[in-house]
Simulated assay, not measured.
Amino acid sequence: MTQLDERDLTDVEQPKLPHGFRFRTADEAGPNAAVQAHLDAWAPSTYTEEAYQGVRRTAPYSGDLHILVEAPDGTIASATIT
Rank of each mutant, 00 (worst) to 15 (best):
P60T: 13
L17N: 13
R7F: 12
V12I: 14
V55F: 14
F23T: 09
R22C: 08
P44V: 11
H38Q: 13
Q53T: 11
I67G: 01
F23K: 05
L68F: 04
P18M: 14
V12C: 07
P60C: 09
F21K: 13
I81Q: 04
A71P: 03
G74R: 12
A41N: 08
V12R: 05
D8P: 03
L65Y: 04
H38C: 08
L39C: 04
R56C: 11
Y61Q: 03
W42G: 06
Y47K: 07
L68S: 01
Q53Y: 14
A43Q: 05
P15F: 13
E50Y: 15
H19E: 15
G20A: 07
A34L: 05
T25K: 02
L17I: 10
E28C: 06
R56V: 05
G54A: 14
E6K: 11
F21P: 06
F23Q: 07
G74F: 09
R56H: 06
T46I: 13
Y52G: 02
L65W: 03
T46S: 15
Y47Q: 08
M1Q: 12
I81C: 06
G54L: 12
P18W: 13
D73T: 04
P31M: 09
P15I: 14
L68M: 07
L4C: 08
I81E: 06
A37D: 03
A51V: 13
E6F: 11
I76S: 02
E50V: 11
T10Q: 14
Q3Y: 10
A41H: 08
Y47D: 08
A26Q: 00
